[in-house]
Write a protein that binds this DNA or RNA. Sequence first.
RNA 1: CGGGAUGUGGCGCAGCUUGGUAGCGCACUCGCUUUGGGAGCGAGGGGUCGCAGGUUCAAAUCCUGUCAUCCCGACCA
Length: 606
Amino acid sequence: MRAHANSPGMTSITAPARAVGPAGNSVAGGPGTSPYSLGMAIRMSTLFLRTLREDPADAEVPSHRLLLRGGYIRRSSPGVYSWLPLGRLLLDQVNRVIREEMAATGAQEVSLPSLLPRDVFDESGRWTEYGEEMFRLRDRRGGDYLLGPTHEEMFTLLVKDLYSSYRDYPVTLFQIGTKFRDEKRPRAGLLRGREFLMKDAYSFDLTREGLDASYAAQRAAYIRVFARLGLTYEIVTAVSGPMGGSASEEFLARAAVGEDTYAGCSACGYAANVEAVVTPAPAAQPVTAPAMTVVDTPDTPTIESLVKVIGELGRDITAAQTLKNVVFFVREPDGTGAPLIVGVPGDRDVDQKRLEAVLYPATVSIFEDFAAYPQLVPGYIGPQGLEGVRYLADPRVTDGTAWVTGANAEGKHALDVVCGRDFTPDGTIEAATVREGDPCPGCGNGLSMERGIEIAHIFQLGTRYTDVYGLDALDASGELTRILMGSYGIGVSRAIASIAEQHHDEHGLMWPAEIAPAQVHVVALGNVDAALDLAASLESAGLRVMVDDRAGISAGVRFADADLLGAPHIVVVGRRYPDGYVELKTRATGNREDVQLDALTSRLAR
RNA sequence: CGGGAUGUGGCGCAGCUUGGUAGCGCACUCGCUUUGGGAGCGAGGGGUCGCAGGUUCAAAUCCUGUCAUCCCGACCA
């Protein structure tokens, strides 16, 4: 495939490389100044590129550092980046892979606006639900608009606009475009931006089975996409977040700088985002504990101090036998709110991320208004005899389990407080922190915790949006059928950063051949004409080629830039060229060998 | 939103304590030399020192305010 040719029938309109002088800059003006003309190698002598020798001070993570140093991207404003020519070429390659795999599923590409009217989002509820994360703006007439964070609403309306018969379905549409989220704290370059590139696809089906099939097709396509992008990743079960929906999986690229934590089980293959990890609940057990007693435990506001004091009273307990009760304030999207007490084993904390995931779309904050609830004694709260406040317990708090917990009085705790006898929670909740070694819900073995970057999220929306807009199809018997929807997103710019995270060393980037902006980087040491000739012949053999034809640059700089820019193969046209040899360096391994010119193309092809 | 730090040419930094009219390295331009792993010598161009007030004969430097950026945490996909 001729990657740079954007129209199959087009041929080169530039002069052949051969005609260009040794200085590499002899063609002034006209089409020849393009560093990557149609069907021709990228010429560094005219490429809009300046590599940086030193790390920019504000770049910490490897992908951000190297993409900046290599001249792929430039920061424009916080969390917003420009793509320079090399970055743009890289992006084109990644988009090409995505488009090919989308086409293979039968999905059709469209392009919807980013500037969206408020009323559409009022109907879906997301104008209020999405919160501060949404970029909002106002036009001259005072009309409210937003910059799209995702496009469920618009796609649903688009399909409703055109389709009304069961004969039209199923259909899957996708687009690759810019998304906007007003991050409180953008960070790590491309990994978490306020403006970013996303491929989002939406499937529309008549039946549950159809939705399952569409979901499976997209999931399989994603597996192929990420394999071609050279990413190591894990598919984990997830919660669906602000988009709503049921079945939900995330693709997490393994990376130390990842912001998502997931739990994996090597024994049975279970993998879940830490938000979605299910705690195996022990079976209810008969009550064996003696009757509840209350003891004086002054100055024990923490679990640690409590365990110590109870021990001094002659009762050896561990933190895991205590019940910690944390008060939160839960605010619903409509603005109403109420306190909620969450009970977890004392050796664990409440993971607010997990808590919010369960309570979504409500938001959670730390409870402070103890004056309004005199029955709540901070540091000494217990579930027994608690009135007027909702109490949800960890799944490990099953009937018959006995706990040491607060006695709802300053300086007092209660022993042998038995669930089902002394108190009954209003329900269970997954909110406790998950730890390395916790039992796997699939098989009971120990879970391990890993960090990852969320590069894709797929979920079955069902009728979440089709209900809102009334997207129906007339079936064969003339009845209306509600359409079932699925949503499938790939963070394109984030995936690129993830590739950089997984494929680099101390010298620079190491792109997989499939998406490298140039698959071969030809370094001219002295003999620029020869290098250009070679580049042209490699290009005509179907490879994407970049050639360092810059004048007056020392060999060391050329080698360093080649390593930094990250083409998988580096070909050096140097001292043995007159004998018919060039040096071939494999970027990923650092291996170098002399290769006969005649054999080079076939070597690179395999 | 809490904590920490920083704003001086395109990039990385020094100068600020003790005010005196801006400097170093890289990059860039020109010349000569050099030419297989970030070359050498020489000559150059480029900065209202984040912004606004104030103190002072004089402010990058001192004072007040403000804005911005980065990092950690919290939160968020």
